[in-house]
Computed example of a mutant assay.
Amino acid sequence: MTSPRVLLLPGWQNSGPGHWQTLWETHFGDLRVEQHDWMQPLRGDWITRLEEVVQQQDSPVLLAAHSLGCHLVAAWAAVSGSLGKVQGALLVAPPDVAQPDFPPQLHRWAQPVLSALPFPAALVASTDDPYCSFEAAAGFAGHWGAALHNIGARGHINAESGLGDWPQGRALVLNQK
């Protein structure tokens, strides 16, 4: 059986040099799904791009999403014809897109898709994420049918969180199959 390909789904503004997604891309050869516009993310465009990339894969895929990428997974799963290729998903630090002070560039994401995902998923949340309370993250996990993992006080679980290439996250994504 073919090993699954890990697709990296960064959030708004992409993932920078020290981010665990970038390190996974460098160290493990994972494929970053490049969006056409990282600064003005249009939900329909992002969904279309993810669908294109999933369809291009000759092997099953695992999705490793960060921040707005988590909402991309939920929105894409609600409309995709390629769900059979997905073995599982790692959803890390989903933002609370319904917050009143959410950036205006992201207004098209303000109504999150809250349907259960049709594949196994793990959601990792921090107790001090500035973009989402732990309670809101637990709510997303419940709606999406994802196993909730509390990583403690690690902020937005990005480069500033000091995780390096984050072996615990890597183990979580690989165990979703």
Rank of each mutant, 00 (worst) to 15 (best):
G11V: 09
G11E: 07
G11A: 09
G11M: 09
G11W: 14
W12L: 03
W12F: 08
W12P: 03
Q13H: 11
Q13K: 06
Q13Y: 13
Q13W: 12
Q13S: 05
N14C: 05
N14I: 00
N14Q: 03
N14S: 06
N14R: 12
S15A: 05
S15F: 00
S15M: 00
S15W: 02
G16F: 04
P17W: 02
P17G: 10
H19Q: 09
H19R: 11
W20G: 10
W20I: 07
W20Q: 08
Q21H: 07
Q21E: 07
Q21D: 03
Q21L: 08
T22F: 01
T22P: 00
T22Q: 09
L23H: 11
L23G: 05
L23R: 14
W24L: 11
W24T: 11
E25F: 12
E25Y: 08
E25D: 10
E25A: 11
E25T: 08
E25V: 08
T26V: 14
T26S: 15
T26C: 11
T26E: 15
T26I: 13
H27E: 12
H27T: 06
H27R: 15
H27C: 04
F28L: 09
F28P: 04
F28N: 10
G29A: 10
D30T: 12
D30H: 15
D30W: 15
L31E: 10
L31Q: 04
L31D: 06
L31H: 07
R32L: 08
R32Y: 05
R32I: 04
R32Q: 04
R32T: 05
R32W: 03
R32F: 02
V33F: 07
V33L: 11
V33N: 12
E34H: 12
E34L: 07
E34A: 06
Q35R: 05
Q35N: 11
H36L: 04
H36T: 04
D37R: 14
D37A: 08
D37L: 10
D37S: 15
W38N: 01
M39Y: 05
M39E: 11
M39L: 12
M39P: 02
Q40V: 00
Q40A: 02
Q40G: 00
P41D: 01
P41G: 02
P41F: 02
P41S: 08
P41V: 04
P41T: 01
L42R: 15
L42V: 15
R43H: 05
R43A: 06
R43L: 09
G44R: 07
G44L: 11
G44V: 13
G44I: 07
D45C: 02
D45E: 11
D45M: 08
W46F: 03
W46R: 00
W46T: 00
W46A: 01
W46S: 09
I47S: 13
I47F: 05
I47P: 04
I47L: 06
I47T: 03
I47N: 06
T48V: 00
T48Y: 03
T48F: 00
T48I: 00
T48N: 02
R49H: 14
R49K: 09
R49C: 08
L50T: 01
L50M: 00
L50Q: 00
L50N: 01
E51Y: 13
E52Y: 06
E52V: 08
E52H: 05
V53E: 01
V53M: 01
V53I: 11
V53W: 01
V53K: 02
